[in-house]
């Protein structure tokens, strides 16, 4: 799992960067973009499951961020603020287009990140993906952010504007649904 630690972003002097971006400094805009684009793109891709959509959502996120940078009041970190825009754009975009990824596509195309797929049964892989797709939007978002992308509940709470307890509850619900969905493969998981 490739995680970008938030600590690495603390080196960015946020307030200075924000002021430079608001002032229209091109170099600052690019710096802001380079700092966060990987993480935003990864999350958008996880949610969309489609390269075109992920690019669109990422671009829309940064366009919106540049437009609204002037209204950023610093009540949360710049990263949290940007991620909340990213998740909002992605979920709204998915609702509008309703273009969820098609499972008919060869699975190996997207398996370039180091995973343990080679040791897992293809049917289980397929079943797990379908089960995650079938989760409700809020459960799937929390599950993807926490279990797949490694966000903490605090970060999820700030990004989705929900209490930490709600984030934990959603994750618990998501795991329970997945456990039931995969019961065929391991009956002992179902209590």
């Amino acid at each position: 799992m490739e995680l970008v630690a938030y600590e690495s972003q603390s080196s960015v002097n946020e307030s200075q960067l924000i002021n430079r971006v608001i002032a229209g400094e091109a170099a600052a805009e690019r710096e802001f973009y380079d700092t966060y684009v990987d993480r935003i793109f990864r999350l958008a891709f996880r949610l969309a499951g489609d390269d075109d959509l992920a690019r669109d959502f990422t671009q829309a996120t940064f366009i919106t961020a540049f437009e609204k940078m002037g209204s950023f009041r610093g009540e949360s970190s710049l990263s949290t603020w940007l991620h909340s825009i990213g998740v909002s754009v992605s979920l709204n975009g998915l609702r509008k287009t309703k273009r969820l990824r098609e499972r008919e596509a060869p699975m190996d195309e997207g398996m370039t990140v180091g995973t343990t797929w080679h040791h897992q049964q293809p049917d289980l892989r397929e079943r797990l993906d379908r089960a995650i797709d079938a989760l409700g939007e809020k459960y799937r978002t929390v599950f993807v952010m926490h279990d797949v992308e490694g966000y903490t509940h605090e970060e999820i709470s700030g990004t989705l504007s929900i209490p930490i307890g709600t984030s934990k509850s959603h994750l618990f619900q998501a795991r329970s649904k997945l456990r039931v969905a995969l019961a065929d493969f391991a009956p002992e998981w179902v209590s």
């Binding site: 891709f45 996880r46 990140v113 995973t115 993807v144 795991r175 997945l178």
Partner: peptide, 29 residues
Amino acid sequence: RFDEFLKTAAQGYNAPPPRTPRDEMWAEV
């Protein structure tokens, strides 16, 4: 153990490409 297994197995869910198309997206932005 199931949760651990889930975390591991779910890494392949909508796995993003290893390289972020930074420059292409920046041009679009």
